[in-house]
Computed example of a mutant assay.
Amino acid sequence: MAINIEPAVIPHLVVSDSAAAIDFYVKAFGAEELGRVPRPDGKIVNAAVRINGSTVMLNDDFPETCGGKSMTPTSLGGTPVTVHLTLTGVDAKFQRALDAGATVVVPLDDMFWGDRYGVVEDPFGHRWSMGQPVREVSPEEIQTAMASG
Rank of each mutant, 00 (worst) to 15 (best):
T82C: 07
F62P: 05
D60K: 00
N46D: 14
P7Y: 15
T88G: 14
G53I: 01
S70T: 12
F124S: 04
R116W: 06
R50D: 08
A48H: 06
M111D: 10
S75N: 15
F24G: 00
K27V: 01
L58R: 05
P133M: 10
H126T: 11
G131E: 11
T103Y: 06
D60G: 01
P133K: 05
I142T: 06
F62W: 12
Y117M: 07
A48D: 10
P73Q: 11
N59D: 09
E6P: 00
G42S: 05
E136A: 09
T82W: 01
R39C: 06
E140I: 02
C66M: 15
V90A: 11
S138N: 08
T86Y: 11
I5Y: 10
P107D: 12
E121I: 03
T144F: 04
S148K: 14
V83N: 12
L85N: 04
M146Y: 14
G101E: 13
G77I: 08
S16K: 07
P38C: 03
A21P: 00
T55N: 14
F94S: 01
P11H: 10
D99V: 13
V104E: 15
E121M: 07
G114T: 12
G68F: 15
R39E: 12
G53M: 08
N46Y: 05
V105K: 15
S18D: 01
A8V: 13
R96N: 15
F62S: 07
W113L: 04
E64F: 13
W128S: 03
P7T: 14
S54Q: 12
K69W: 09
V120W: 00
V104M: 12
A31L: 09
A100I: 12
R36Y: 05
L58V: 10
M146C: 10
I3S: 10
A31Y: 06
L34H: 12
S18K: 00
W113Y: 15
M146D: 13
A21R: 00
L98M: 12
G30A: 05
V119M: 08
V90M: 05
M111S: 10
I22P: 01
S129F: 00
R96M: 15
R135F: 13
R50T: 05
Q132M: 09
A20V: 03
P38W: 01
A21G: 02
